[in-house]
Write a protein that binds this DNA or RNA. Structure first.
Length: 468
RNA sequence: GACCCCUUCGUCUAGUCAGGUCUAGGACUCCAGAUUUUCAUUCUGGCAACAGGGGUUCAAAUCCCCUAGGGGUCACCA
């Protein structure tokens, strides 16, 4: 299916990939897949001072983690320098752009004046029609666009609708810096055009930039892509998302033990909805996603909802996959105390483990008792459960269990229930000491499941450990 | 400050385009109860919102205007 839709995600590699960026990528990815189009990647690395290789890697890693695969080799904006230079020269030749020799002092003056007059545009266009022959010596000029002086510019935005601004609100923007590098405004327009981007989906912090970009498209005589500006993600207090809100890089969430499925699902539901549907897989999202269903109001980041989604996906996840995810954590936490049957046990006990965990770290923590070599360490609470009466029950039970031939959850259940009946005690009276002996803790999956997973020999040995 | 955008439970949202079916629905959180060997899960129930004010209309969460609050942009950053 060829739809002609080409979207792009164009991060600047000046830091980690944050969740706002991840959502922008997600929406671009979804729209491209939904329409059978392409999803491209462009690294906006024109700011040499702040761009790093590490940041590029972090961004690519983050996208891969989320499963947001892009279609072609990522494009580095800096590699397109020649093209930018050639095009801006063309604008100069056509007198659609001009050299401006203003000093920083002059600019500061103009800025102050604009501030005093309460205007948002400050550059007065003083070099717009001046002959460069009159330029002061030794000053490297910038190149500015000759913006239209009157009329208005309208963005027909797929999310925001028609938004217009009067052209006299905008001054002549800089296209090329004095050091000969293109500004974002110029580069983004040229690259989106050259990459045949059909839909620019980005945060609405770019909405007002769009008016300026539209002027550049016009100067080149190019058709412009369709724009869709999505509302920003805010912190829980309603202000812009920042490090203060614990809204860290994607990698941090990954480290916290979150699943990419949960992250995608959470991000998807910020400013987008499909009726009352809450649990939506990436496949389902591809089928349902449309820009027209994206809302216009910003949303506040809510960690507890993310967590609840995460527990959901954890319960749904494949047991073997979860084992591979917690393996490195267990190996690190347990050092040499790892039993050689550890991961077999965890795999078979996974169904009981995963419904009790909210994230990968917790899952690993809860799985430790399966992974540990005897004798296991007992928590204070476990010690308390192993009082005299608890131990005497365990002593009796040791014998009962020892005689069981068919060691399965069912037969163990029968045997222990029978024992409780015989002694006229509640199941909890014997279950808690047993749990303490087997897991070293007072909280765990079901006791029969644990016995079955541990196996007869290991179970009896652990019971014996606390009795001697 | 100027320009632009936004405003439904604490949070994410449905409903707004095509006004009546909305005494406003779902989810998360929280509270209560049930199930249970612990914890968790699950289940049942509950609290909780149309920012405010004017209009238009037989009828407004939905259309119009004003006010307030919030956000974004205004770099030789992207």
């Amino acid at each position: 299916m060829e739809s002609g839709v080409i979207t792009r995600f164009a991060p600047s590699p000046t830091g980690y990939l944050h969740i706002g960026g991840a959502r922008t990528a997600l929406f671009n990815f979804l729209y491209a897949r939904h329409t059978g189009g392409k999803f491209l990647l462009r690294i906006e690395d024109t700011d040499l001072k702040r761009s790093t290789k590490e940041a590029v890697d972090a961004i690519l890693e983050g996208l891969e983690w989320l499963g947001l695969y892009w279609d072609e080799e990522p494009i580095s904006q800096i590699s397109r320098r020649q093209r930018h230079v050639a095009l801006v020269k063309k604008l100069i030749e056509e007198s659609k752009a001009y050299y401006c020799y203003c000093s920083p002092e002059e600019l500061a003056e103009m800025r102050d004046l604009a501030k005093a007059e309460g205007k948002s545009k400050f550059y007065d266009g003083r070099w717009r029609d001046r002959d460069p022959a009159n330029s002061p010596s030794g000053v490297k000029p910038v190149i500015r666009l000759k913006s239209p002086l009157d009329g208005e510019t309208t963005v027909s935005d797929l999310i925001q609708g028609d938004v217009s601004v009067s052209n006299d609100e905008m001054d002549d923007m800089i296209l090329f810096r004095a050091d000969g590098s293109p500004t974002y405004m110029l580069a983004v327009v040229v690259d989106d055009h050259d990459m045949n981007i059909s839909h620019v989906i980005r945060g609405d912090d770019h909405l007002t930039n769009t008016f300026r970009q539209l002027q550049i498209y016009k100067a080149f005589g190019w058709d412009h892509p369709t724009f869709a500006h999505m509302p920003l993600l805010h912190g829980l207090d309603g202000t812009k998302l920042s490090k203060r809100h614990g809204a860290l890089g994607l990698a941090e969430y990954r480290k916290m033990g979150l699943l990419p499925e949960a992250m995608n699902n959470y991000l998807l539901r910020q400013a987008w909805a499909h009726g009352d549907d809450e649990i939506i897989s990436l496949e389902q999202a591809i089928e349902w996603f449309d820009i027209k269903d994206v809302g216009r109001s910003p949303s506040n980041f809510d960690f507890s909802k993310l967590i609840s989604l995460n527990s959901h996906y954890l319960r749904e996840a494949d047991d073997g996959h979860l084992v591979t995810l917690i393996k490195p954590i267990l190996i690190e936490n347990l050092h040499g105390k790892l039993d050689n049957r550890a991961f077999d046990r965890i795999k078979s006990g996974m169904s009981g483990l995963k419904e009790r965990a909210k994230n990968i770290d917790e899952l690993a923590k809860n799985a430790e008792f399966y992974a540990c070599r005897r004798p296991i360490t007992l928590s204070d609470k476990a010690l308390k459960a192993l009082d005299a009466s608890g131990k005497s029950h365990l002593n009796n039970l040791q014998i009962e269990l020892g005689s069981i031939e068919n060691w399965s959850g069912l037969s163990l259940n029968d045997a222990i229930v029978k024992y409780a009946k015989k002694k006229d005690i509640k199941l909890g009276v014997i279950a808690q000491p047993l749990r303490a002996a087997l897991t070293g803790n007072t909280v765990s999956p079901g006791i029969f499941e644990i016995l079955a997973v541990l196996g007869k020999e290991q179970s009896l040995a652990r019971i014996n450990d606390v009795l001697t």
